[in-house]
Design a protein around this nucleic acid. Structure first.
Length: 214
DNA sequence: ACATTAAGTGATT
DNA sequence: AATCACTTAATGT
């Protein structure tokens, strides 16, 4: 069961003004769930918005074949982007929520939290920060799924080259790599660019420098 | 200065 | 993931 010592003020006092904390205390309901428990599935309407106190909530999308795509996790001190968005726009949930670990949360009625938007700057900021952070997580996951196969192949290729030559400097054009791997130069260029953005390597003309956190 | 090759990027399939 | 089309950057003559 959820840890009883985790309190509203323990988690949120640095984020919200005291008047808002008082109002949360007054108008929210404590809710606890055990690991594996389904909290919401796609299509259900959203009547309350959670403020996580402890544990982890997993938010995911499940397609027709039952395959799951992880969207984001919600942990202590965070809200849930999907409930904020859909709650305010009166749209049914587009996602499924499951307790990843035992969790405790405070549930705020949607109509109440809508009143807080104009009333409390700290609440507005919290909602927007939640949406941005979790949206970024979703994008990251989409990237991973989209690029996974060639990703791993290319990294394996580069490591092998590096091991064989005994150097972290690889003297090959993108075209040569593409030829070796039986793929298109453009694909290689895009993946390498992505790796460079992830600080895995540095790109030069006809030369790739592998970095430590490859 | 000009031509050639390598790399980056949007759009489409 | 591949292809096309086009741009931009680097290099050689």
């Amino acid at each position: 069961m959820a840890n009883e010592t985790v309190s509203l003020k323990g988690v949120y006092s640095s984020m919200f003004e005291s008047s808002l904390l008082d109002e949360i205390e007054e108008k929210s309901m404590l809710f606890t769930a055990t690991a594996g428990q389904d909290l919401i599935k796609a299509g259900q309407s959203i009547k309350v918005v959670p403020l996580m106190l402890s544990g982890t909530l997993k938010v995911s999308r499940i397609n027709e074949e039952g395959q799951e795509l992880l969207l984001y996790y919600v942990k202590s001190g965070q809200g849930c982007a999907m409930t904020f968005s859909c709650g305010m726009m009166s749209k049914p949930s587009q996602v499924e929520g499951v307790a990843e670990e035992d969790l405790s949360m405070l549930c705020v009625p949607v109509n109440v939290m809508e009143e807080w938007m104009p009333k409390y700057p700290s609440w507005r900021k919290f909602v927007m920060a939640t949406i941005v952070d979790e949206f970024i997580d979703v994008i990251k996951n989409v990237d991973e799924v989209t690029f996974k196969k060639m990703d791993e192949r290319l990294i394996g290729y580069l490591k092998e080259k590096s091991r064989i030559t005994g150097s972290s400097l690889i003297n090959l054009s993108h075209q040569q790599i593409a030829d070796d791997m039986g793929t298109n130069r453009v694909v290689i260029s895009r993946l390498l660019k992505k790796f460079e953005n992830d600080k895995k390597l540095l790109l030069f003309r006809n030369q790739i420098k592998l970095l430590k956190d490859m």
